[in-house]
Design a protein around this nucleic acid. Structure first.
Length: 90
DNA sequence: CATTTGACGCCAA
DNA sequence: TTTGGCGCCAAAT
């Protein structure tokens, strides 16, 4: 059926979106927020990921719209290393 | 329940 | 170009 109205909170939707990010690809917090349903919740997205570092969720593939890596629970440097390791040329 | 924080984004100076 | 400030949202305290 199509009763699946997804009553999950914004955070759950964010996780789902981030999880869809393919290897070697990066999405900005604003993009994720938009896909999650709130085009201006970029801040909220960062906040959610920050307090919920989940394995399986490539939160390291989420960067700022400026192209900066932003932050990471393990260290921004670590995040950049992972992205390069994944195949992110720039 | 109200207030503060925070891995952001965009505009103005 | 860089810095500062404002706006917006959700979770934590």
């Amino acid at each position: 059926m199509m009763n699946n109205k997804r009553k999950e909170s914004f955070s759950s939707r964010v996780y789902a979106v981030v999880r869809t990010i393919p290897k070697g690809k990066t999405l900005s917090y604003a993009e994720v927020a938009k896909m999650a349903g709130s085009p201006k919740a970029a801040r909220a997205v960062g906040n959610i990921l920050n307090k919920n570092y989940d394995s399986g969720i490539p939160c390291h593939r989420v960067v700022r719209s400026d192209g900066s890596t932003g932050g990471y629970n393990r260290g921004e440097k670590r995040k950049q290393e992972i992205l390069k390791n994944e195949g992110v040329v720039a």
